[in-house]
Design a binder for these strands. Structure first.
Lengths: 343, 343
DNA sequence: CTGAAAGCGCTTACAG
DNA sequence: CTGAAAGCGCTTACAG
């Protein structure tokens, strides 16, 4: 209960607190005789340096803040895993915050991280325009935007080419003869949401087709409702692009609820590729992001900033890649239940 | 860059630092005139109190440590979500640590949390016997074991009735005419792993049947291998109980890899019930834990300890419940492809 | 109600 | 190589 402090160790070893501190911090200018005594005393007393005091004195911590918008989304979970691993290996701790896509929570957490004097922040922003981001950077704390760009130009960023993913997913279906293609969008105030929608819209209008969308807000339940809504409005829909992995769960629930077969009646392309995708019936054709690589990149950018090795902001964009599975039907093939055309 | 401190605010407001501190901490004994001036100065200067200094002075933080063993397991993710929410609502921050089921990492993180002087710890232990747990408690920091019991009797605990889940899952299959039942076990040095296995073994031996198990170590890839191994050793297996949700992914991969149909050739019962379960083909019959309720309970126990309201350790155990879906075949029914028996 | 002063437990120039 | 002393930025008895 009464915690052992540096002066207790010093007394036991018969040296000053300064010497104990030097041993603790690997300062070479300590005689080996004294070093041994100090080490022995630390061992005997079970001394644990108080990191709060150390941080106060040094004026910085060794903690990095990671702010994500949805801890229940495997996309972010995978990223956190990589970030935490890399940070731990470099002697950093991770203070993890979950904003639930709520701007107010994001601001509160960023303020906390600033007050905590963390050395850096990795942020999947719920609100790209949040002025708190600028405040954090103003305190000299580097910020790396992950998954989503932020407005402040001083922040580094690691993102995917979301516009392209939306476009490619749509083109994939267009190329297989679909034209009645719907889109289940994420939150439109979030870059991944609006960019993927923009890509879809671009691909549709390039072919002279009218977009047909509904918002699932990156959530399972909302996506289920949105999909039902889309099907009501456009009963002739033959294909749906779903804007992220959680919304796919909702979309599939809606389709099953109505007894609509995938891919026979409606084809599905998913943006994202979580680990359970291939177990679904049918296995889902997906556009996958290299999440782990992206997370590692984010840590790398942050470390460069913390080390003061770089002053100009960098923005790294990763491509998606197609995982072709079984959830899309090719409408150019002869339908099974019709008589063959003569040619 | 040059951060605003309490003395800057004091100077601006024409009061002492003590007064600023009192305003900050809601001390009632400050005249409203001065309070207003202080508040105005804080606003004008954009002052953010340094929490590190505050923590050092107060000798405690408002951070709680959450140590989980696998952040990529939805079971823990759901729990973290609830814990973080509840903690935030009560003015606490969460320092999240991921041990990857590694005892060494657990010890390192617990030491860090102790050095950080967190107010409490929620721990899903990778190593129940870790002496560091006792050290943390010895520092006066309450520990609540989550998901898995720890050896130190001073810790509170919130767990599920894992023995019973293993037994019930096995009995479920026995009741449907299966006898050639295998078990894909988790890590046996972890309580959830050994308890579920114990329940399975109990149910089998009660019927005079020999257990047949393989260890998937709570991991997808290991479970795939383990399942293949089990099928090699026991080709007549008609049913498998899988010890957690991630291992189900591996088990299904192994079965599909060999073209074994579920449930026609082999039935599956899963312990755990993640959100993607019902999308799998076939939807999986599962024994589900009330994870969110358990997480909320863990926070509650921790808060009681932090508030000093309770001295004796409590252990709360939750039951699993059966979600009956489509992954089990009833062998007592007449097989479709055989001629009817005469009776 | 208010302020001067001590102190939280470290680290680090400074002097020797 | 070593120690005495100052100081990190707050909070909180203490005295008034």
């Amino acid at each position: 209960m009464a915690q052992v402090q540096i002066k207790d160790v010093a007394a036991r070893a018969g040296v000053s607190s300064a010497t104990v501190s030097r041993v603790l911090n690997g300062d070479q200018r300590v005689s080996s005789a004294r070093r041994e005594r100090v080490l022995a005393a630390i061992e005997e007393l079970g001394y644990q340096p108080n990191r709060v005091a150390r941080s106060l004195r040094r004026r910085y911590t060794d903690t990095i803040g990671v702010v994500i918008s949805d801890i229940e989304n495997p996309h972010f979970t995978q990223a956190v895993r990589v970030i935490e691993d890399a940070a731990f290996a470099k002697g950093h701790r991770v203070l993890l915050c979950n904003t639930d896509e709520t701007p107010a929570k994001q601001a509160a957490y960023l303020e906390m991280l600033a007050a905590e004097r963390v050395v850096g922040v990795i942020l999947a922003a719920a609100d790209a325009a949040d002025p708190t981001i600028g405040q954090v950077i103003g305190y000299g704390i580097p910020v790396v935007a992950f998954d989503r760009q932020v407005d402040d130009p001083r922040a580094d960023a690691v993102t995917s080419d979301n516009v392209r993913a939306g476009r490619d997913a749509t083109d994939y279906l267009l190329g297989r003869g679909h034209t009645e293609i719907g889109f289940i969008a994420g939150r439109l105030n979030i870059q991944t949401g609006s960019d993927r929608l923009a890509g879809y819209t671009e691909a549709m209008t390039a072919r002279g087709l009218a977009p047909r969308t509904a918002s699932g807000k990156f959530r399972i339940d909302e996506a289920e409702r949105a999909t039902a809504d889309l099907l009501d409005r456009f009963p002739r829909t033959t294909a749906i692009v779903v804007g992220n992995n959680l919304m796919t769960v909702g979309a599939l629930r809606a389709l099953r609820g109505r007894g609509i077969a995938v891919p026979d009646a409606v084809s599905i392309v998913q943006i994202d590729d979580p680990f359970w995708t291939e177990l679904v019936d049918p296995a889902l054709t997906s556009f996958a992001q290299p999440v782990r690589t992206m997370a590692a990149q984010a840590v790398e950018l942050l470390m460069e900033r913390i080390a003061g090795e770089r002053d100009v902001a960098r923005h790294v964009v990763f491509p998606f890649h197609l995982e072709e599975r079984a959830s899309c039907r090719d409408l150019r093939m002869r339908p099974i239940d019709r008589a063959p055309d003569h040619d």
